[in-house]
């Protein structure tokens, strides 16, 4: 084994990045840690509370309920967006002007600011004036997302699917395009069925990009805030109050900085843990 070259000067070049990360991540994070172990009644006076807030959050039924809602939401949108995205990518044209048209159409939802997406769907789904709301009610189904939990969930999920399936489509399409023609030709000659082509050629070749797509969609949906906040505000009642909405309610609505800080840290650790588990499983599968 060759000996590594040691040059202490190298640390000098790392310094700017360290400083940057410290300012935009470490220092804010440490203030949160600071809040999470103290109690304050204003005037910058703090009292040491130890792990009290953490215990409180972990035993809080409200937190359990939001976490459960969050997990449900994330699982539902992943179950819809990933297969749907792959299906759309498979049916997109492979050459000609259709490619650019499809790609632009697919990219459009991704370019719209998140609060605008929320506002659009809010109006779109209103039972009295919205196109979607009127249509559903016109079909004889009683639909009002501001009052019915089921309708609120349906609308939130639809909105997320509309907004983010494109990301899966674009990644899956990129994966599909990287498959050389010879694979399809060989499969034809080997007498493979379309299902076998999907199962043994397309899916394995898309695995890497799909891993990334799932990871991104998992993280994003687990931290979703703006769109449901604008669409439903977490209601009706608490039925669409996901973790981040709940967190903001505690921190800014009730100004309980201690519990909110503790909850932030727990939230952060959950995301980190789930990503780590997910990534490790994917990589282990890859190594086999």
């Amino acid at each position: 084994m060759a000996t590594k070259t040691q040059n202490p000067k190298a640390w000098l070049f790392v310094l700017p990045v360290v400083a940057l990360v410290a300012f935009n991540a470490l220092i804010p994070l440490m203030t949160v840690v600071n809040y999470s172990v103290q109690e304050t009644f204003g005037d910058n006076v703090f009292f040491w509370e130890g792990v009290k807030w953490f215990e409180q959050v972990l035993h809080s039924e409200r937190f359990h309920a939001s976490l459960l809602r969050q997990l449900m939401f994330t699982s539902i949108i992943l179950t819809i967006e990933v297969p749907l995205g792959v299906a759309i990518a498979l049916s997109m044209p492979k050459k000609g002007v259709g490619v650019s048209v499809c790609l632009v159409l697919m990219a459009l939802p991704l370019l719209i600011p998140w609060n605008v997406v929320g506002a659009m769907w809010n109006i779109f789904a209103l039972p009295d004036i919205g196109l979607l709301g009127r249509m559903i009610n016109g079909l004889g189904i009683d639909y009002n997302f501001t009052q019915q939990p089921g309708a609120a969930w349906f609308t939130t999920v639809m909105m997320d699917v509309w907004h983010w399936t494109s990301l899966v489509v674009l990644l899956a399409y990129a994966g599909l395009r990287s498959i050389p023609d010879a694979y399809y030709q060989a499969a034809k000659i080997d007498g493979a069925t379309p299902w076998a082509v999907f199962r043994f050629i397309q899916l394995p070749k898309m695995k890497r990009v799909l891993t990334i797509a799932i990871l991104l969609r998992f993280m994003d949906s687990f931290m979703i805030y703006t769109e449901p906040f604008v669409l439903t505000g977490g209601g009706p009642g608490n039925t669409t109050t996901f973790l981040s909405i709940d967190l903001v309610k505690i921190a800014l609505g009730q100004f309980d900085l201690g519990p909110a800080a503790a909850m932030s840290l727990i939230y952060f650790l959950i995301v980190l843990l789930l990503c780590w588990i997910f990534y490790t499983l994917m990589m282990r599968h890859e190594a086999q």
Binding site: A182, Q185, A186, K188, I189, D190, F200, I201
Partner: peptide, 20 residues
């Protein structure tokens, strides 16, 4: 189509089914 012509063809660059 090729699968009904009962022929075999080997290509310039290797084609293997990775998961198998």
């Amino acid at each position: 189509p090729p699968d009904q012509r009962n022929i075999a063809q080997v290509f310039q660059f290797p084609v293997v089914y990775d998961t198998m």
